[in-house]
Design a protein around this nucleic acid. Structure first.
Lengths: 189, 189
DNA sequence: AAATTAGACTAACAAACGTTAGTTTTGTGA
DNA sequence: TCACAAAACTAACGTTTGTTAGTCTAATTT
């Protein structure tokens, strides 16, 4: 557990502001004020506003990519893989709830290589998920519904979880996982 | 069916840009360019950027509020009311898919009275939904799960539907409703 | 034909933006 | 105590921002 550098502190402060107002509505002066310093001082630690965003977003994108990869190479059933993906999202949400807003809402403000890297990772992630869903249907694990609707309903719930997790007073992670898996897989009626 | 005024055209152009980059990242010059005119000309039709946002967001918020109200006063079962709410979201998504991005992501840039009006409507909407879910559980219509988790999983799926609706080539509305109700209520396994 | 109006235009404004340059302060190790 | 590096500062830059004022044009109304 290495100590947080000044750069990490800036990124954390920025995350919090991005979550409230979005990347474009947050100025370097806002971030500096949150840190108790002047805007120009930020440049002793980071190269610019864009670096804050890309550090934030690409870190999380890689986290999801890595998680999906280990699910893919596991020998578990399609249904269990979906359970694992749900838990992956919950784990990342619990550990990085501030930064997830930027991942979801501000990725389009990335530039050049960072943007195309991100889009690639996101597309691959969805494609892998889609494959698992299709395998689940073929194997009879899942009901024979349109894979796209299943994929969408699970993914949009998981992607917006960060919005609720904080508001509802940080529920216990294991209870959350249990409830979430139950509702998403078995429905409510 | 009254014809679209120039103001309506501006709001439509702005919606499309807001959806792509968010309210703060879109300039009046961007909107003007989309219309093929100069930024200053926009002010012959609207009072400012803020009016575009509030027109957009409050219109939709009222649409949801009105829809929820007619569901509430109906004499249907809690389960049927939830079905109706799902269909309400799908109808609004199909008819206003561009504007929904601003509702979801840019409402916090509203000012003063508009902001507090919006927040009130949104809170009331969620509270009404929550009440229906609780009644459904009490009546035995729904499984006895935590109402908050049910509410969250349905609502976050419905709220992000606009993102998928366009990407997946505008599916048929009735099929979409059927699939959606099935997946959200009965689960996938 | 004259008058009115809707809707575009150019030019400019003050404020806020991200960022740079150069300087001063602060804390650490020799 | 001195030297050095880390990290703050002030001041300013060129751009972009939302918006206003005033003007011109083309269509519609009288």
């Amino acid at each position: 557990m290495k100590t947080a550098t000044r750069k990490d502190e800036i990124i954390a402060a920025a995350s919090s502001l991005f979550k409230e107002k979005g990347y474009s509505a947050v100025s370097m002066r806002d971030i500096a004020q949150e840190m108790g310093i002047k805007a120009a001082s930020l440049y002793n630690h980071i190269s610019g506003k864009q670096e804050i965003l890309s550090t934030l977003v690409l870190f999380l994108a890689k986290e999801f990519t890595r998680g999906m990869h280990s699910v893919m190479i596991s020998e578990r059933s399609p249904l269990d893989k979906i359970r694992d993906i749900i838990e992956l999202h919950i784990d990342i949400t619990v550990n990085h709830s501030e930064a997830l807003a930027a991942l979801n809402n501000d990725w389009m403000h990335l530039e050049d290589q960072d943007l195309s890297d991100f889009v690639k990772m996101r597309e691959d992630y969805e494609e892998n998920f889609r494959t698992i869903v299709k395998e689940g249907i073929k194997a009879g694990d899942l009901k024979p519904r349109h894979p796209e609707v299943i994929l969408f309903s699970i993914l949009s719930t998981l992607r917006t979880l960060y919005l609720w997790y904080q508001k509802r007073g940080k529920l216990d992670v294991n209870i959350l996982k249990k409830d979430m898996v139950a509702v998403l897989l078995k429905g409510i009626v």
